[in-house]
């Protein structure tokens, strides 16, 4: 009986290891593809696939909540980012292939140095022995940490992010609510089709 359980533990450990390495390789390969492909959409979704593989690696570390949230947030973010990339780069879908790199040599140099520095740090640092044991419910432990000991960080980061988004939209928008609803905000809202007609009339 004990042999059977040992054998099954070893084989499942093996499977998890294989899956982890597969996720890691896919994550890196997709990350490289971001700079190899010649279309904004492909670059964006290669990055999304890289993040999905990272989420898979987190799931395999039994950080289920973090893993699934990485997939959720990153797919959402990349879907929106693709629109902004295309908007600012002015690329026609598929018809105009364009390079995804600039400052080629400098960028490669910085990337290699950073990768070696961080990678060697992760490999060479003497990691401490584990003290204590993980919480039985890591999701709950994460929630408790965010809502208790790290509450201040979250309360500062949240408003800063919202302010950034609102200011970003305001600065990039050519029309504000005053253009839309008049100086006293009491006119019916005037949106593009009607607005164009009005401007034609002028």
């Amino acid at each position: 009986m004990s042999t059977v359980s040992t054998v099954s533990t070893v084989s499942t450990m093996g499977l998890v290891d294989v899956a982890f390495w597969a996720c890691a390789l896919v994550a890196v390969a997709m990350g490289v593809l971001v700079f190899v492909v010649d279309s904004m959409a492909r670059a964006t979704y290669a990055l999304a696939a890289s993040f999905v593989a990272t989420g898979g690696a987190l799931l395999l570390m039994q950080q289920s909540y973090l893993g699934v949230v990485v997939v959720l947030m990153m797919v959402m973010e990349m879907a929106v980012m693709a629109v902004y990339m295309v908007m600012f780069m002015g690329m026609n879908p598929a018809l105009m292939p364009m390079s995804m790199v600039h400052s080629h040599r400098a960028a490669i140099g910085v990337a290699v140095v950073t990768f070696v520095a961080l990678g060697s740090g992760a490999v060479l640092v003497p990691w401490p022995e584990r003290r204590g044991s993980p919480s039985p419910d890591v999701t709950e432990a994460l929630g408790t940490a965010i809502m208790e000991s790290h509450m201040l960080v979250m309360m500062v980061v949240g408003p800063v992010m919202v302010a950034t988004i609102v200011v970003g939209v305001l600065l990039s928008s050519s029309r504000t609510r005053y253009d839309r609803m008049g100086d006293d905000l009491d006119q019916p809202a005037l949106d593009p089709p009607a607005l164009e007609r009005r401007e034609e009339r002028r």
Partner: peptide
């Protein structure tokens, strides 16, 4: 985490 997974799946539809 079924609720979060359901949410993640419907986000995939965006892409």
């Amino acid at each position: 985490l079924g609720v979060v997974w359901a949410n993640t799946l419907d986000i995939l539809v965006w892409a």
